[in-house]
Design a protein around this nucleic acid. Structure first.
Lengths: 150, 150
DNA sequence: GGCAATTAAATCGTATGCGATACAGTTGCA
DNA sequence: TGCAACTGTATCGCATACGATTTAATTGCC
């Protein structure tokens, strides 16, 4: 933020922006996952949905949306693609016909084992130590909470 | 990363993922910018392109792409929208007909003044002190470099 | 000089994101 | 009990992202 590199002093330099650092890091991270996820024929958001379901199967669309902060406009087509791939099944709830519950198929469950290779690969690519990763993650989680308005 | 919350010990919990913390923070940041950028009728990537041009006018498409790490498939339509809005002008270079140089219009230049309101607003929304912001930004820039392969 | 290799944008296809709206199903309350 | 308000998904429209291909222009090298 030195004035020498920000002559107008109004902080509009690209390199000064936290937003851009975040945006660039997020896309670089997605790019780092790409070759690993290609092997599983998954996109990055599809992998996130599977992380939710591997943690607890049979969640409703709205719950997946709460976890990932994505709404149905994004999730419905994504889930349909996962269903077309035979990894999940979408079923209308019997108690409440408005609700769609998402279940892993046998193949969706099997995929979890292959995914366990991914986190160590990424840790290595990131060049972070585990404590550094944990601190950065925590800082980002705090920031996210505050940006959303506590 | 406590084992008690990761029973299988394979680090596939959503909350453990640095990637998700980054992805969520990046989207929360974009959402925080949205109301400010709406007033300027800009999208977030359009704003990033203008940051590049406000820093140095008349850059070629490939140079904007280097700065933002975006390729022509993303930039060409985005720049055409900015041109349709009357904020930039795209001109084929005289020396090299393959090159397209992007220039701010008078209105594109004028918009800069209104944009100076944005960084302080975001700093406040983020709840970070300036030193905290600088450190986080630096950590993210390092991470991005390493993920891209040094 | 002439052509193969390279380069810069543009284009195409697919997959997100997200605001706005639609719509079926459920609930709460007069 | 009837229906207005609310909920949970789905749909639509628009703007990114990005891998792959195309096209036009330039360069390097025999």
């Amino acid at each position: 933020m030195s004035a020498s590199r920000d002559p107008k002093g109004d902080h509009l330099r690209l390199e000064d922006q936290l937003c851009f650092a975040l945006y660039a890091a997020s896309r670089a991270m997605t790019a780092a996952y790409a070759p690993l996820l290609d092997a599983l024929e998954l996109t990055y958001p599809q992998y996130l949905v599977l992380l939710v379901l591997w943690d607890h199967d049979g969640e409703r669309v709205s719950h997946i949306g709460d976890r990932l902060q994505l709404d149905s406009a994004t999730l419905t087509p994504l889930l349909k693609r996962l269903e077309a791939r035979g990894l999940v099944e979408r079923r209308r709830s019997a108690e409440d016909e408005r609700v769609v519950e998402v279940f892993l198929t046998a193949e969706g469950k099997r995929l979890r084992r292959r995914a366990t290779e991914i986190p160590p690969c990424i840790l290595e690519k990131s060049g972070l130590t585990l404590p550094e990763l944990i601190e950065l993650r925590s800082t980002l989680q705090d920031l996210t909470r505050r940006l959303r308005g506590d």
